[in-house]
Simulated scan of single mutants.
Amino acid sequence: MYQSKKVRMNRLFGNGRCLDVAIDHGVCNEPSFMDGLEDMEKVVALLAAAGPDAIQMNYGQSDLLQNLPGREKPALVMRLDMGNPYNRFRHRDMWAVLQNASDPIAPALRMDAACVVVNLFMLPDEPGLFKQCVENIARVGQDCEKFGMPLMIEPLVMQPNSERGGYLVDGDAEKIVTLVRLARELGADIVKADPTSDPADFHRVVQAARCPVLVRGGGKADLRQVFANSYALMRQGAHGMVYGRNIYQHDNPARVVKALMAMIHDGVDDAEAWRIYEASGR
């Protein structure tokens, strides 16, 4: 008997909140994302010991987490797709494909994942890429319903590559809300959403989702500002975060995890989170 979505969701969301540390950046094929992920075995062991709710990985690296002994380890969130919108330049052909085209969620079932995640890219003048994402989600969604696997959709509204080059998110609340609403229409059980440019607008994203909303972290930023932004978004109704580079590219990722877990699960503000971060380094 396959697990129900509720059982798997319970593995992710302690008290309805979740910190998911994303280290699935290898399939982005963007060298700037890889700093800090050179030794995946070491990274996974360090993050698992730090104790976030989940670690987001691809199938080919997920054994590093699932082979760790003991029951007290983070849940596995498995990335199912890959694409080329992350690169610094715009390709002639923009694409997003499932990593296992013939049976998309089979790897997640084999590795006992608690959730799977798929992108929903919205790039200017790239309707074909958007169509591919919708087709991917439709394919994965059918299997998720069949096997009781929660589906996380990652709606990403991006700026034109010509603006500054590379993977740049458009924080326009109207665009984000519209795409998040579409993610829900497509069957999202969890939405991984970009922060709105004005955090005070983020409650509109939560309203549109009608399911748990985790904030996407993006590129590495000043940690105090990351904490301040995170707290502001939590106050707007976010259920947690999916942070990658803002954790694994810091000198001591475990300290960042500890501070964010206190914010997410204990309700501390950004100032207290910073104190926790500093105190854990002594």
Score class of each variant (00 low, 15 high):
107 P>H: 07
67 N>V: 02
90 R>S: 13
241 M>Y: 14
252 N>G: 01
16 G>D: 02
209 A>S: 06
266 D>K: 15
276 I>A: 03
33 F>V: 03
237 G>E: 05
118 V>T: 09
276 I>S: 03
51 G>W: 00
10 N>H: 10
253 P>L: 00
38 E>Q: 10
231 Y>H: 15
36 G>V: 01
22 A>H: 00
29 N>Y: 07
16 G>W: 01
26 G>I: 01
185 E>W: 11
142 Q>W: 11
69 P>C: 06
180 V>C: 09
72 E>H: 12
110 R>E: 15
184 R>K: 14
52 P>S: 04
17 R>H: 09
57 M>G: 02
1 M>L: 10
115 C>I: 04
36 G>E: 02
83 G>K: 09
45 A>G: 01
90 R>Y: 09
226 V>F: 02
135 E>T: 11
224 R>K: 13
162 S>F: 10
266 D>L: 12
161 N>F: 12
102 S>G: 14
238 A>N: 03
208 A>H: 07
200 A>D: 14
88 R>K: 14
262 A>L: 06
69 P>L: 09
4 S>R: 09
170 D>Q: 07
169 V>A: 10
68 L>W: 07
47 L>S: 02
81 D>V: 08
129 L>C: 03
267 G>Y: 06
106 A>Y: 10
41 E>W: 01
179 L>D: 07
145 E>D: 15
89 F>S: 13
173 A>Q: 06
73 K>R: 13
278 E>L: 14
131 K>Q: 14
257 V>G: 00
143 D>E: 15
230 S>M: 12
45 A>P: 00
41 E>A: 11
176 I>T: 09
45 A>L: 07
5 K>N: 05
173 A>L: 05
97 V>D: 15
263 M>T: 03
148 G>S: 08
17 R>E: 02
92 R>K: 14
131 K>L: 11
32 S>C: 07
122 M>K: 15
282 R>M: 13
206 V>E: 05
38 E>I: 09
188 A>D: 05
66 Q>S: 10
196 T>H: 05
99 Q>F: 08
138 A>E: 14
166 G>N: 05
39 D>I: 00
207 Q>L: 12
146 K>F: 08
282 R>Y: 13
35 D>K: 13
78 M>D: 02
